[in-house]
């Protein structure tokens, strides 16, 4: 018997999938672990330290802001952790810690929380944080440490300034194998292509992301660079593996809040990112275009989504009859 106990009454459906925002974010974090390990091996413990600092400050800023603005605590959904890791991955390992904290503050408070928190930000917080730092500290943001030069070196001051392959003279280029393994100068999380691909495959396997945006993004860059390089596949391979292209295409461009949800929209979004990246790399004065391309497409994302939203089931026919009636 019911024993006077009250029954729960709710709207259907009474079954729910077991997914949650937290589980999705946890999957993204797991997918980023191989790249984190690789960056620690390549750039030393300082890379790990920078990432940890970034994660902790992001979570702290989010917690404090939500408390001060008297809103529910959202750090449990782990999205601030993801932002922290991604922003750190976009920084050179030599960056001073206070700059990291400033970048985290910009990403979490200004870009994410000022616009309403998770799901409401109009651009990717990590990318916006990186661009903010690029504009503010352009010197420090492009002084790379030599790969594999001191595992235990936690201090950033004696870093050797090296250039990324995108701006380097062609005779000093690292080999393609080194590029694949990530033994080159660059931001701490972007260099090891293999680790990033492993993470990407994990996300695909867990159905956290669909391959549409990464593929259309990377393929567009490949095609344009193939035309530019007049069929030189080595040139294309360097272009694909350098800069933050793979990191951006797999982990940043696929951000839910700032990319379209429609299939067609995702293709347009990916192609747009690819084209802007190529334009900046080939004709711009900046060495790297992935961040700017994604942030520009983020802004266009709502418009793309609206233009590509499918018609509700069965409406196509009606339109046709209308056209027929007009004719």
């Amino acid at each position: 018997m019911i024993n006077g106990e009250k029954l729960t009454v709710s709207a259907s459906p009474h079954f729910r999938a077991k997914s949650s925002t937290r589980k999705i974010m946890l999957d993204v974090i797991i997918a980023l672990v191989p790249a984190l390990i690789a960056s620690t091996v390549i750039f030393g413990l300082r890379a790990l330290m920078i990432t940890c600092v970034s994660v902790i400050t992001c979570v702290l800023f989010e917690y404090v802001f939500r408390k001060l603005s008297k809103k529910s605590t959202t750090i449990g959904d782990l999205s601030a952790v993801v932002t922290g890791i991604l922003l750190a991955f976009n920084l050179p390992s030599t960056i001073p810690v206070w700059m990291v904290i400033l970048g985290d503050m910009f990403a979490i408070i200004i870009v994410k929380q000022f616009f309403g928190g998770i799901g409401q930000n109009f651009v990717n917080p990590a990318i916006a944080g990186r661009i903010f730092m690029l504009l503010s500290f352009s010197g420090r943001m492009s002084s790379w440490s030599e790969p594999c030069s001191g595992f235990m070196n936690l201090g950033g001051a004696d870093a050797i300034s090296g250039a990324t392959p995108l701006v380097e003279e062609s005779e000093n280029l690292p080999s393609l194998i080194d590029m694949l393994l990530g033994i080159r100068g660059g931001c701490l999380g972007e260099t090891c292509i293999i680790a990033l691909l492993i993470g990407g495959i994990y996300l695909l396997f867990r159905k956290v992301i669909t391959p549409v945006i990464p593929l259309s993004f990377i393929c567009t860059v490949a095609v344009v660079m193939l035309i530019k390089g007049r069929g030189d596949f080595t040139f294309v391979a360097y272009q694909l593996m350098s800069g933050g292209l793979i990191l951006g295409a797999i982990f940043m461009a696929t951000d839910y809040a700032t990319s379209p949800i429609t299939f067609k929209g995702k293709i347009i979004f990916g192609i747009g990112c690819g084209l802007i990246t190529c334009l900046i790399r080939l004709f711009g004065s900046l060495p790297e275009g992935v961040s700017y391309s994604i942030i520009l497409m983020n802004i266009l994302s709502p418009l793309i989504e609206r233009a590509t939203t499918p018609k509700p089931f069965g409406t196509v026919k009606e339109k046709k009859t209308k056209e027929a009636a007009k004719a």
Binding site: L7, T8, S10, R16, S19, S20, T21, I24, T74, D77, S79, G116, G117, I118, G119, Q120, Y256, A257, I261, T262, T309, P310, K311, P312, F313, G314
Partner: peptide
Amino acid sequence: DAILKNETDCIHCGRCAAACPLSLTPTN
């Protein structure tokens, strides 16, 4: 089995639109 899922903010993941058999976009 009667526990209700806690409602949190939409993260715009698009799973609702992908699941809709009638091509609607529930999030919008």
